[in-house]
Computed example of a mutant assay.
Amino acid sequence: MATKPVIEIEYCPKCNWMLRAAYMAQEVLSSFTDEIHGVMLVPSEIAGRYTIRVADKEIFDRKRAGRFPEIKELKQLIRDLVAPDKSLGHSDKSPSSNI
């Protein structure tokens, strides 16, 4: 059996982004309890950094994207790597879907 991945959220403590990182960690843990080993919050030494990695693979960078990830988007990015067949319920529906 493969080792469960660790999700890493690296955030800028000088920017006061720890609460945002903790909230995202909580959301990830509640959605992927059985699929991941855990979530690690990493205070960055680089100002303005907010980067999310799955098993050392970067999946989101705030500076490159020009914004923070939406929770729905973050869950989809993680799901696609750790549990591609997992349903995310309402988070799977596209914004343009009115069904």
Results as ranks from 00 to 15, higher is better:
residue 1 M to R: 11
residue 1 M to A: 09
residue 1 M to C: 13
residue 1 M to V: 12
residue 2 A to G: 10
residue 3 T to Q: 14
residue 3 T to S: 13
residue 4 K to V: 02
residue 5 P to Q: 07
residue 5 P to N: 09
residue 6 V to C: 11
residue 6 V to G: 06
residue 7 I to S: 06
residue 7 I to Q: 07
residue 7 I to W: 01
residue 8 E to H: 05
residue 9 I to R: 14
residue 10 E to I: 01
residue 11 Y to H: 00
residue 11 Y to W: 00
residue 11 Y to L: 03
residue 12 C to F: 03
residue 13 P to L: 13
residue 13 P to A: 15
residue 14 K to L: 09
residue 15 C to D: 13
residue 16 N to C: 13
residue 16 N to I: 06
residue 17 W to N: 00
residue 18 M to S: 15
residue 18 M to N: 13
residue 20 R to L: 10
residue 22 A to V: 14
residue 24 M to N: 07
residue 25 A to N: 12
residue 27 E to G: 12
residue 28 V to T: 11
residue 29 L to V: 08
residue 30 S to A: 11
residue 30 S to F: 02
residue 30 S to R: 06
residue 30 S to D: 10
residue 31 S to F: 15
residue 31 S to G: 06
residue 32 F to D: 00
residue 32 F to V: 01
residue 32 F to R: 00
residue 32 F to A: 01
residue 33 T to V: 07
residue 33 T to G: 04
residue 34 D to Q: 07
residue 34 D to T: 11
residue 35 E to M: 08
residue 35 E to R: 04
residue 36 I to Q: 02
residue 38 G to C: 02
residue 38 G to I: 13
residue 41 L to A: 00
residue 42 V to M: 03
residue 42 V to N: 09
residue 42 V to T: 12
residue 43 P to T: 04
residue 43 P to K: 00
residue 46 I to Q: 07
residue 46 I to Y: 05
residue 46 I to R: 08
residue 46 I to G: 00
residue 46 I to H: 04
residue 47 A to Y: 13
residue 47 A to I: 13
residue 47 A to L: 08
residue 47 A to C: 11
residue 48 G to L: 12
residue 48 G to H: 07
residue 48 G to T: 13
residue 48 G to V: 14
residue 48 G to P: 02
residue 49 R to H: 11
residue 50 Y to W: 10
residue 50 Y to I: 02
residue 51 T to Y: 03
residue 53 R to S: 09
residue 54 V to R: 10
residue 55 A to Y: 15
residue 56 D to N: 13
residue 57 K to H: 10
residue 59 I to T: 03
residue 59 I to A: 06
residue 62 R to E: 09
residue 62 R to I: 07
residue 62 R to F: 04
residue 63 K to I: 15
residue 64 R to S: 10
residue 64 R to W: 11
residue 64 R to V: 08
residue 65 A to M: 09
residue 66 G to C: 09
residue 66 G to V: 06
residue 66 G to S: 10
residue 67 R to I: 07
residue 67 R to V: 06
residue 68 F to S: 03
residue 69 P to E: 01
residue 69 P to Q: 02
residue 69 P to Y: 00
residue 69 P to L: 01
residue 70 E to H: 07
residue 70 E to P: 02
residue 70 E to V: 04
residue 71 I to R: 08
residue 71 I to F: 05
residue 72 K to L: 06
residue 73 E to H: 07
residue 74 L to V: 01
residue 74 L to G: 00
residue 74 L to T: 01
residue 75 K to I: 05
residue 75 K to E: 03
residue 76 Q to Y: 01
residue 80 D to M: 03
residue 80 D to N: 06
residue 82 V to S: 02
residue 82 V to F: 10
residue 82 V to A: 04
residue 83 A to R: 09
residue 84 P to M: 02
residue 85 D to R: 04
residue 86 K to S: 07
residue 87 S to C: 12
residue 88 L to G: 14
residue 90 H to Y: 10
residue 90 H to V: 06
residue 91 S to M: 11
residue 91 S to P: 14
residue 92 D to R: 10
residue 92 D to V: 15
residue 92 D to C: 14
residue 93 K to Y: 05
residue 93 K to S: 06
residue 94 S to N: 12
residue 94 S to H: 14
residue 94 S to P: 10
residue 95 P to V: 14
residue 97 S to V: 02
residue 97 S to F: 07
residue 97 S to L: 06
residue 98 N to V: 12
residue 98 N to W: 14
residue 99 I to M: 05
residue 99 I to P: 15
